[in-house]
Design a protein around this nucleic acid. Structure first.
Length: 566
RNA sequence: GCGUCACUAGCUCAGUUGGAUAGAGCAACGGCCUUCUAAGCCGUAGGUCUGGGGUUCGAAUCCCUAGUGACGCGCCA
């Protein structure tokens, strides 16, 4: 595709000696309003070099450039030079590019097939897979897909919370109050009940906590009974979790969780001791991080058993040696920021330069109107329940609007789940939000169903087209503003994907497809597509097809399906 | 106490890393289906970008300060 931005940079460089082509390229921006043009170059910074007012500079440069075949107009407005690309040239460049590349439009090979790890979801065994977990799960899944699209060999890891003192608690609770048959009827919910009961009882009986710690230490030391109970709970949990992952279309390359690293911890502790970065404190071992403006990190407890941070350090070390990653990404909530800063600093103190390749992608908290979600307090909304309800609502809408649709159940699942996922990925990840059934089950405006609906509409028109439009298209027929708006947006897709990867922000892609859907719907409304004039029809169909493709690719990148009918 | 983050329309949020007239959706009001899917489109109304300083040609964006809210800070994960 013609690189319009680079063309402009080179054109300007001939008139501006004070800046390099690269500097000019980086200074070029998009005008705030589309009627001003497609690209703009602000001249403020040239004032000193030219010893003139910026608006004079702009006017002079415009005059010096004159005209160019790619551009409809090159104008100066105040201190800006605005470039408006010729509509037919633009349409041809963009639509042919998309048509050629198909579902690879926007893809790159900058990853050079190097290993890139995305750790996400990381749910806790024997605990609720609740609405709060959708964040890590879907943000991580989107990053996994986006980085894969950019040529990395992305590896998804579900760092299961399957270890730690909490399992001591579960074992104690099960032995005291558990009933195998009751648990088998509804495993996770029953296990959660035991967990809740443990905490209620422990309030008045601190001995329980000590017993729990003892059981975890037993588990860590390979006690048969502890191991069997733990393995059983893990298995029961995973069956349920996989049901949800399946609904979400999420796949993991590895389920190596915290327990996986338990036998790798001693070697890490050894290394830390040898490198002299730990010291004893009140019977425990800590790393003093005061020189780095952080509180000390507790590495081993006074009974010698491991902690969360110990396992994360061991996991990172293992991953470096096993995968030799170029990037190791952790999609974990913002409240754990300090934890990540601490252990990444410790890796650095151990002398591992790859500490800089570890990234904590943090996100805000989902809460309920009653307060933050807490398994311990029994205050949770199960993710599966939300998904099922969304699918059910979608089904009702289909029955009403499109009763003759063939595969209603499958579409209802795609659209319903999509609505929930879209909601999750539409805001910048750092934002906290309060879960609401009303907004989750609303399917109008900036929602997943809206974007999917737009895609389905495009598919529908294409199905009804009775001409071949793969070649011989007269792009001059796409000269109206609505068409140009769509084309301009289509042209930006590759850089949006790159930027979303750079910022680890899938919402950029979600917002982009929403924007594209909005523009396309205007085009669709203003321009009848299946008209008698064959030339016009072919040109518009080409636009429809390119939009269909780009919406689909975008939706897929954030883990959403793009049904062809709904 | 120390630290991190957030604050933009009634509500939920964008705002291209400092640029032009701050934009969407929801809610409200008014229009558009005998023509390609109305889960749609168009229009009206809605703003002291939390307050106050500063930096400069130029600030929602950077710095300082105050406020409000959320979160974190040694034996949980």
């Amino acid at each position: 595709m013609i690189d319009f931005k680079m063309t402009i940079a080179e054109l300007l460089n001939e008139k501006i000696e004070a800046m390099t082509v690269e500097e000019i390229y980086d200074t070029i921006e998009y005008p705030k309003h589309e009627d001003m043009g497609d690209y703009a170059f602000p001249c403020f910074r040239l004032a000193k070099a030219f010893r003139k007012a910026p608006n004079m500079i702009a006017a002079d440069i415009v005059e010096a450039i004159g005209s160019h075949a790619y551009f409809e107009t090159i104008e100066s407005v105040a201190a800006y030079i605005n470039f408006k690309i010729d509509k037919a040239v633009f349409a041809k460049a963009v639509l042919e590019e998309i048509s050629e590349k198909g579902d690879q439009y926007g893809a790159t090979d900058i990853g050079e097939n190097k290993n890139l790890i995305v750790e996400f979801s990381s749910v806790n065994i024997a605990k609720a897979f609740h609405m709060g977990h959708i964040r890590s799960t879907m943000i991580g899944n989107a990053l996994y897909k986006i980085f894969g699209f950019l040529g990395f060999n992305a590896i998804s890891i579900n760092h299961l919370g399957d270890y730690g003192t909490q399992f001591g608690k579960m074992i104690v609770a099960y032995k005291k109050w558990g009933d195998k048959d009751v648990i088998l009827k509804d495993p996770v919910r029953e296990l959660v009940k035991l967990y809740v009961k443990f905490h209620e009882e422990a309030e008045n009986d601190p001995v329980l906590d000590d017993t729990a710690r003892e059981w975890f230490t037993k588990l860590e030391n390979g006690d048969q009974e502890a191991y069997e109970l733990w393995a059983w709970m893990k298995e029961l949990s995973l069956v349920e979790f996989d049901r949800v992952y399946d609904m979400l279309g999420v796949h993991f390359d590895s389920y190596a969780g915290e327990s996986f690293y338990s036998d790798k911890i001693p070697a890490v502790l050894e290394e830390m001791r040898n490198k002299n970065i730990m010291k004893k404190s009140e019977g425990a071992e800590i790393v003093d991080l005061e020189p780095h403006n952080m509180p000390p990190a507790l590495i081993t407890k006074k009974d010698g058993s491991s902690l969360y941070i110990t396992r994360d350090i061991a996991a990172a070390m293992y991953r470096k040696s096993h995968y030799d990653f170029v990037k190791n990404i952790y999609v974990v909530g913002a409240p754990q920021q300090l934890h990540f800063k601490q252990w990444m600093k410790i890796i650095e103190l151990m002398g591992h330069e790859w500490a800089k390749d570890c990234v904590h992608v943090e996100f805000g908290t989902v809460s309920l109107e009653e307060g933050s979600m807490s398994t311990r307090k029994g205050r949770v909304i199960y993710l599966e329940e939300v998904l099922l309800k969304a699918v059910e609502s979608t089904k009702a809408i289909i029955e009403e609007k499109n009763p003759n649709l063939e595969n209603k159940d499958e579409v209802a699942k795609q659209v319903g789940v999509g609505a929930v996922v879209y909601q999750e990925l539409s805001n910048n990840r750092i934002k906290d939000y309060t879960f609401s059934w009303e907004s989750t089950l609303s399917f109008e405006g900036e929602t997943g169903p809206y974007v999917m609906y737009t895609h389905a509409r495009a598919c529908s028109v294409l199905r009804k087209a009775d001409v071949e439009f793969s070649a011989g298209i007269e792009y001059k027929h796409l000269g109206d503003d609505a068409s140009k708006d769509v084309i301009r947006l289509l042209s930006k897709f590759p850089e949006v994907v790159l930027e979303s990867a750079r910022k680890y922000e899938p919402a950029m892609v979600t917002r982009y497809v929403t924007n594209l859907a909005q523009r396309f719907n205007r085009f669709y409304h203003d321009n009848p597509i299946l008209v008698d004039d064959v030339e016009v029809k072919k040109a518009r169909l080409a636009l429809v097809d390119a939009t269909r493709q780009t919406i689909k690719t975008g939706l897929n990148l954030v883990g959403l399906a793009a049904p062809e009918r709904m």
